[in-house]
């Protein structure tokens, strides 16, 4: 058990290694549009999504700002508070761009997180497969389930 929950299985081992080596408390691998690919340490899936949305947003806006001042290169941000630090970076792979977010405490450091981020990028780049094409098979009457779920969600049942 690595403690990592991965939506895409190829991401599990690299993220588990990253978390173990860097000592990060929380970590999140997302697409640049804020979709979660793998996560470690978050207890509620919906909290993960908020972190993913904000992380991807910060990376995207920083990327634009760096372009505005004529800089090129990938976004890599480290913010250290008195108790915990946040590391946020984007990187490229044969599958496209991804964003990593790591929260670390006093058991780790910005240096360790950045060091093992480099290894993570290398591992993912060499292990991630090309985008596959698999279809989601939905039931013919999926609309009924969707409507029931939405109605229940909105208290209309």
């Amino acid at each position: 058990m690595t403690g990592v929950r991965a939506v895409e299985q190829w991401a599990e081992a690299p993220l588990a290694n990253f978390v173990r080596e860097s000592g990060a408390r929380l970590s999140l691998l997302t697409t640049t549009s804020g979709q979660v690919v793998a996560q470690y340490g978050f207890t509620r899936s919906i909290d993960v999504m908020a972190a993913a949305a904000l992380g991807a947003g910060v990376v995207a806006s920083t990327s634009l700002m760096t372009q505005m001042i004529g800089e090129v290169g990938y976004v890599k941000i480290n913010n250290r508070g008195p108790g915990q630090g946040i590391f946020l970076a984007e990187f490229d792979t044969p599958r496209g761009k991804y964003v990593i977010l790591a929260v670390y405490g006093s058991g780790s450091s910005a240096g360790l997180v950045q060091l093992f981020f480099e290894d993570l990028v290398e591992e993912i780049t060499s292990s991630c497969p090309a985008p596959e094409t698999r279809r989601v098979i939905l039931a013919e009457d999926f609309e009924r389930e969707l409507n029931d779920n939405l109605a229940a969600l909105f208290g209309r049942k």
């Binding site: 908020a50 969707l146 969600l153």
Partner: peptide
Amino acid sequence: FFDFLPIELGTIS
């Protein structure tokens, strides 16, 4: 910037 709200819809197929 944006507003963001994640929701768990339930099970579909």
